[in-house]
Design a protein around this nucleic acid. Structure first.
Lengths: 162, 162
DNA sequence: TAATAGCGGATATATTTTATCCGTTATTTA
DNA sequence: TAAATAACGGATAAAATATATCCGCTATTA
């Protein structure tokens, strides 16, 4: 039961994008360089973010990714679901219907209690993720990032945009 | 992000064990037959349940698995964690420390905001799973199982215990 | 027009999940 | 006491998924 590594990468990337000057974009290559992750694989993940409408893209030189909407309107759940999907973490295979005591499918009126409890837990998990927005994460980053790292990051970014 | 199939199997098995006459046990082989799942693989999972102290075992003929404590004292979380472990679904690889802006590890005083939000969501998920006990699941089974299936199951069980 | 950059598809590699098998020990029943 | 049953641990094997790379395509910019 583990989330894809891509979730960590793309959420960090979005936090980065949220801090960019407006009308600036950042390519997958540059994001990958900044976080030291595989460029091609990160690009694949960012394309999923684009499909999900979280980031917008611009082709060509000085193109790249930028947020498609205000950071306040992007939830952690949005980003998690863009990478890992919306399907419940518990997959019910209806084993109650199998074996020597199983009866015709139409006799099972409700999902079994186990599946219901699991889905409820999955729901509260998603509800909790929805409470955190990209804006929240950006604020936490701004206040908690070590000063020395903040300086290095700003310097690196200045080099990026000439 | 998906739970192991073993979770579904073992929770159903425990619900079955909860309905057994006291001092009766059921072998992995019989459980596998009842639910129509691979016997050896189910046995592996049941061994994990045993290690976790959820079921107790008895070797030899008429041996097998039975609950190690009252169904009220076994939560869905206990069973999920017996199979899938207690580690958070989000693994933070500290990518903030990598790349050109990373600084010495000792400068990072708290886990990053992303990891904290993810861990909180994982926590509410586990809290929710803890609310359901095996007794609850047993009651749901008793009230919602199709009558025809209930009869078939009882007949099958009678054959089991001679 | 050359370089940049996203995109989609194909493919390769690694890791995890699922599944089986075997030898051992403990226990029960005939 | 012997034979059958059953849990247990370890070693593999097979299948599925996650991770990673590469290529050609189109759009865009300097």
């Amino acid at each position: 039961m583990r989330l894809s590594e891509g979730v960590e990468w793309t959420v960090h990337c979005c936090t980065m994008l949220a801090g960019l000057p407006p009308d600036k974009a950042m390519s997958a290559k540059k994001l990958a360089e900044f976080f030291d992750v595989p460029p091609d694989y990160l690009a694949k993940h960012m394309q999923q973010m684009s499909k999900a409408g979280i980031v917008q893209t611009k082709k060509g030189p000085n193109g790249g990714y930028s947020l498609a909407k205000p950071a306040r309107d992007i939830t952690l759940l949005d980003m998690v679901e863009a990478i890992d999907g919306r399907i419940c973490s518990f997959k019910c295979t209806e084993i109650r219907q199998r074996g020597p005591s199983g009866v015709s499918p139409c006799q099972y009126k409700t999902p079994c209690g186990i599946a219901r409890a699991m889905r409820k837990a999955d729901q509260v998990w998603r509800d909790e993720l929805r409470k955190t927005t990209l804006f929240d994460l950006q604020m936490i980053g701004l206040t908690e990032t070590p000063p020395e790292q903040m300086n290095k990051a700003i310097t690196w970014l200045k080099g990026l945009f000439k």
